[in-house]
Simulated scan of single mutants.
Amino acid sequence: MKSLVNQLANYASYHRDRRNIYTHFIGIPLIVYALVVLLSRPSFTLSAELTLTPATLVVVISCVYYLFLSLSLGLVMTVLMAFALLGAAPLAALPWAQWLGWGVGLFLIGWVFQFIGHYFEGKKPAFVDDLIGLIIGPLFVVVELLFMLGLYKDLKAEVEQIAGKVR
């Protein structure tokens, strides 16, 4: 498994234009939330007390991965993903057509923002070359926000040393 710095620097190399990063602040959360909404409706009853959804499984696996990369950032991602799960439940409980409409609609709107950002960047999305970019994208957005707040300065310097500065 690549280190946190290597994962973020690789992803960042596709995202050095500030406008692209800003569109990702909207697009990636919409996509993640939409996926959680869509994966929250199917469920598997394991016992009278335990029902699992694909969303729960995907969130747990993602958060474990984030925790392996960085305990502190993994905890931040775990909290955010827990909120996504909680926020998805009301939409997943809607009638079928409304649930699907919200899920697919938010997913498509998120991707529109992504592609607008990559138009500004002049580069393809990172996941085209490396599918791990699909799981690193949400972490990247959180880390970029933390960088803007003046946090994780050493991590920012390491990422920028490899990927270059945001322009």
Rank of each mutant, 00 (worst) to 15 (best):
Y65E: 00
A82F: 14
V141P: 05
P95K: 05
L106Y: 06
Y152G: 00
F120D: 09
V112E: 07
A89C: 08
Y65T: 08
C63Y: 02
T51L: 07
L39Y: 05
L38M: 11
R18Y: 10
F68V: 12
L50A: 04
S13C: 07
W99T: 05
L85D: 02
V76F: 14
G137V: 01
V143P: 05
G150R: 12
V36S: 01
V5S: 04
L151Y: 11
V58M: 09
Y14H: 14
L52D: 02
D154Y: 15
V128I: 15
W102H: 01
I31P: 08
A157K: 11
D17M: 01
G101L: 07
G101A: 06
S43C: 10
M81S: 14
L46N: 07
S70C: 03
L46P: 01
P125M: 03
E160W: 03
Q114S: 04
I132Y: 09
S3Y: 12
E121M: 06
V36M: 01
D130F: 10
R19V: 14
L50K: 04
L69G: 00
I116D: 08
I162K: 15
L94I: 09
K2A: 15
R18A: 11
G103K: 01
S72Y: 15
E121S: 06
V141M: 04
L106A: 08
T56R: 09
A55C: 02
P95E: 13
C63W: 09
H118F: 09
L73Q: 04
L8M: 05
V5L: 06
V143R: 03
V64Y: 12
V76G: 00
F113E: 04
T56N: 05
S13N: 09
L106N: 01
S72H: 14
F147N: 00
G87P: 05
I116L: 13
S40V: 06
L94P: 08
V112A: 10
V141R: 00
I109R: 06
S72V: 15
G103E: 06
P95V: 06
R19M: 15
L4H: 03
E49F: 13
S62F: 08
I26D: 00
F140P: 00
M1T: 13
L108Q: 05
Y66K: 10
F140D: 02
V143M: 02
V32E: 03
W99E: 04
D130Q: 11
L35K: 05
R167A: 11
L106H: 00
A34Y: 08
I28Y: 04
V36Y: 04
